[in-house]
């Protein structure tokens, strides 16, 4: 445990709170000093830690890949280029096998999602107290902040804002292309003419609200499931890391046991972070493919 003064419950809560910047209830702007304050700020606030880490990792990803892209040649590839090309080829194969439309943005989007989400998730492997502890120490030493009220979450994908944000962007893209390919009429028909249809005009009219209910739920479920799946997995993984970290406060025997547990879970978690990045990417490709699919007429 980072601080003996915290109970286990407080410790967990402290780890689950984002560093939120927004307007306090008294009208001043600043960082929230507690979960309740963060809640009070409402929608017009921003999670600084989530934004910082996701942008940092995204820029890191683009920097590495841009460097490889600049030096890319058709000759024998060197180490970095080889690795990057392996990823590119993997993404390209995934996109080609699942996406049947013609859209040059799907593959770069899939690449961005895969690598970015992977990097974001990989932050989970850094022991839970290192970065928040270092940050709290810095804040308290140089800025005189109370370390108990310095919140710092390093895994953006454990913040639903991040996963919803990405899923929302993917959803907007799929909606845009869906309307672009099928037209407004085709898109409306997709929502209202399936799964029930009839040749009788009156019966068809009765079916429209039913179809719309079903299809609309299915439509909304896509970005929801996409983001919640990633969020849920990463949140649960983070939670287990936090619980294991609590063991370090329970004497040396429990501490050593916790060390092994953390090692085991981290190794297992490597699979989860990769898998979740892959699933997020694959589902994105599939949703884009669905946007391009013109339903066969009944």
């Amino acid at each position: 445990m980072a601080d003996e003064a915290l109970t286990a419950g407080q410790y967990i809560k402290h780890h689950l709170q984002n560093m939120t910047y927004g307007q306090h209830s008294d009208g001043s702007w600043g960082l929230a000093h507690s979960a309740a304050e963060a809640k009070e700020m409402g929608f017009m606030s921003i999670n600084v830690d989530t934004m910082f880490w996701s942008i940092f990792l995204g820029v890191l990803f683009l920097w590495i890949f841009r460097r490889a892209a600049k030096n890319a040649t058709a000759d024998t590839p060197s180490g970095l280029q080889n690795f990057i090309e392996m990823i590119i080829e993997f993404i390209d194969t995934s996109v080609k096998s699942a996406f049947n439309g013609r859209n040059a943005i799907v593959a770069p989007m899939a690449l961005t999602i895969f690598v970015w989400v992977f990097l974001i998730n990989a932050m989970d492997l850094i022991p839970v107290d290192w970065l928040p502890g270092a940050f709290a120490w810095m804040a308290s030493t140089f800025f005189g902040a109370d370390p108990h009220h310095v919140y710092f979450k390093v895994v953006p994908s454990t913040d639903p804002n991040a996963t919803f944000g990405m899923a929302l962007a993917v959803f907007m893209m799929s909606m845009y292309y869906s309307v672009k390919i099928k037209g407004v009429k085709g898109f409306a028909a997709e929502l209202t003419m399936h799964p029930f249809s009839s040749n009788n005009k009156l019966v068809q009219l009765l079916f429209i609200p039913v179809n719309f209910m079903l299809e609309f739920v299915a439509l909304i479920a896509k970005p929801l499931s996409l983001s919640l799946r990633l969020y849920g997995n990463m949140f649960a993984g983070e939670m287990i890391f936090i619980l294991i970290a609590i063991m370090y406060g329970g004497g040396w025997a429990l501490g050593i046991f916790g060390g092994f547990l953390q090692l085991g879970w981290a190794i297992f978690h490597i699979l989860i972070i990769t898998l979740q990045a892959y699933i997020f990417m694959t589902l994105t490709i599939v949703y884009m493919d669905l946007a391009y699919q013109v339903p066969d007429e009944h």
Binding site: L16, N18, T20, G22, A38, K39, M41, G42, F43, M44, S45, I46, N47, T50, M51, S54, I55, G58, F61, L62, F65, R66, A104, I105, P108, M109, L111, T112, W116, P156, D159, P160, N161, A162, F164, G165, M166, L168, A169, M172
Partner: peptide
């Protein structure tokens, strides 16, 4: 765990990254 502007920020960030990658 509050939904706030981070949501929009993430969407925009994501879009910019995708564009750069593209």
């Amino acid at each position: 765990m509050n939904i706030n502007l981070t949501l929009i920020g993430q969407s925009i960030t994501f879009a910019i990254f995708v564009w750069f990658c593209y």
